[in-house]
C-alpha cells in the first residue's frame, strides 16, 4: 500500500529525531511508537516498550488523568498541551544538565495531538515531549535574582528597624518632591520630628524596649499620613517628613495630628506602658531657598519646640 509505505518513511524520520521526544499511544495507552530521543533519555528500548502499557514503565504517572487526556484528544480531535510551569514533567526522565547539580529530572512541555490514518479517522494520540530544563532553570534563577534585587532595593531605601524610608531615600525624595512642587506651583512642607526624652526610655527599660517603642512610634505616625507623604527615619529617634502639595495651615494641622496620635495613649511594650511624646519643627519650601536651608530651618523650629516645653509643634518664623 502506497500510504503505509509513506508512513514508514516518515516514521523512520521521526524515529531518528533525537531532539524531541515522540510517542504514539493507542486508546488503551499502549505504546505504538517510541523514538530515539525517548530511548536515549529513558534507557528503555523501543522493542521493550512497544505494545506495552506506558504506565507500567512509569508508575508515577496519574493514569486516570492521562487516560482522560488521551480520550479527550481522540474524541475532540484537538491538540492539548501541558507546561512545565504547572506540571514539571509528564514522564520522569533524568536530567542531562551536568552544569546544574540540584536538578535531577528533565522539565518538559508536552503536546498531545490526534494521529489519523489514511481515511482521516483518529486512531491514536501522539505526544511530543520537549526538554525545557534550561528554560525552567533560567526562569527559577531569574525569579531568585529578582527577589534578591527587590530585597536589595528594600535595604537601600528603607530603615531596617522601623521599615520607614531611610535618610538616603529622604535626600533623594526631597529633591524630587521639591522640583515637582516647583513645577506644579504647589506648596511643600517639611517637618523634623523627634521623640522627647528618648534617652531616658533607653536607660530605664533597655535598648530592646527602646527599639520596640521606636517601631510603634513609626507605625503610629505612618498610619496618620497620606500615601504620597514620605516619612523617613533621619537618625536615632529623629524622623523627617516631606509633605507635598500642602499649605502652611495644612502642614501645621497634619503635624498637630501626628503629635496627638503619639500623645493620646501610652505605647504598650509587654508589661510596660510607656508614655511617649514628640516635638515637631516645620519649615516650608520657598523659591530661592536651598534644600539645606529648609532642613536647617525645620531643625531650628524643632529646637524651639523642645525649648518651649516639648510635646508641641513649632513652625519656622521668617524674620
Amino acid at each position: 500500500m502506497e500510504g503505509s509505505g509513506q508512513f514508514t518513511e516518515f516514521s523512520k524520520l521521526l524515529q531518528e529525531l533525537s531532539s524531541i521526544g515522540f510517542i504514539i499511544l493507542d486508546r488503551r495507552m499502549n505504546v505504538i511508537f517510541w523514538n530515539r530521543f525517548m530511548e536515549l533519555h529513558s534507557h528503555i528500548k523501543s522493542n521493550e516498550i512497544i505494545n506495552r502499557k506506558l504506565t507500567s514503565f512509569f508508575p508515577d504517572v496519574n493514569e486516570a488523568w492521562l487516560s482522560k487526556k488521551i480520550r479527550s484528544t481522540l474524541v475532540l480531535n484537538n491538540q492539548a498541551v501541558t507546561s512545565w510551569e504547572q506540571r514539571a514533567y509528564l514522564l520522569k526522565l533524568p536530567s542531562t544538565q551536568y552544569s546544574i547539580d540540584d536538578v535531577d529530572f528533565m522539565y518538559q512541555n508536552c503536546t498531545y495531538f490526534p494521529v489519523k490514518n489514511s481515511d482521516n479517522t483518529t486512531i491514536a494520540v501522539g505526544i511530543a515531549i520537549y526538554d525545557v530544563t534550561e528554560i525552567a532553570i533560567s526562569q527559577r534563577l531569574l525569579e531568585n535574582v529578582t527577589e534578591q534585587a527587590l530585597d536589595l532595593q528594600e535595604i537601600s531605601t528603607h530603615d531596617h528597624l522601623t521599615g520607614l524610608f531611610n535618610r538616603k531615600f529622604f535626600s533623594d525624595q526631597l529633591v524630587q518632591d521639591v522640583s515637582r512642587c516647583r513645577r506644579l506651583d504647589w506648596g511643600l512642607g517639611l517637618a523634623m520630628i523627634d521623640a522627647d526624652y528618648f534617652k531616658q526610655i533607653n536607660d530605664t527599660y533597655g535598648h530592646q524596649i527602646g527599639d520596640e517603642v521606636l517601631k510603634e512610634l513609626a507605625q503610629r505616625l505612618q498610619r496618620t499620613l497620606r500615601t504620597f507623604d514620605s516619612l523617613c527615619r533621619y537618625g536615632g529617634e529623629e524622623f523627617a517628613l516631606i509633605l507635598p502639595n500642602v499649605d502652611k495651615q495644612q502642614t501645621l494641622m497634619i503635624c498637630e495630628r501626628l503629635r496627638e496620635c503619639v500623645n493620646q495613649s501610652p505605647i504598650i511594650c509587654g508589661q510596660q506602658k510607656i508614655q511617649v511624646t514628640v516635638s515637631i519643627g516645620t519649615a516650608r519650601f520657598e523659591k530661592n531657598k536651598s534644600l539645606e536651608e529648609m532642613i536647617a530651618e525645620a531643625d531650628a523650629a524643632l529646637y524651639l519646640a523642645k525649648h518651649n516645653g516639648r510635646n508641641r509643634v513649632e513652625q519656622h518664623q521668617t524674620k
Binding site: N62, W65, L66, S72, S83
Partner: peptide, 27 residues
C-alpha cells in the same frame, strides 16, 4: 478532568485544570 482529590487544593493543578477545561471546551 480525571485529577486526584488532593489536586483540588494545589494551585498549580488548579491552573492546569483551568487550562484543560478551557482548551477542551474551546476546541
Amino acid at each position: 478532568l480525571g485529577y486526584e482529590e488532593s489536586d483540588a487544593v494545589d494551585e498549580r493543578r488548579q491552573k492546569e485544570m483551568l487550562l484543560d477545561i478551557s482548551n477542551a471546551v474551546n476546541s
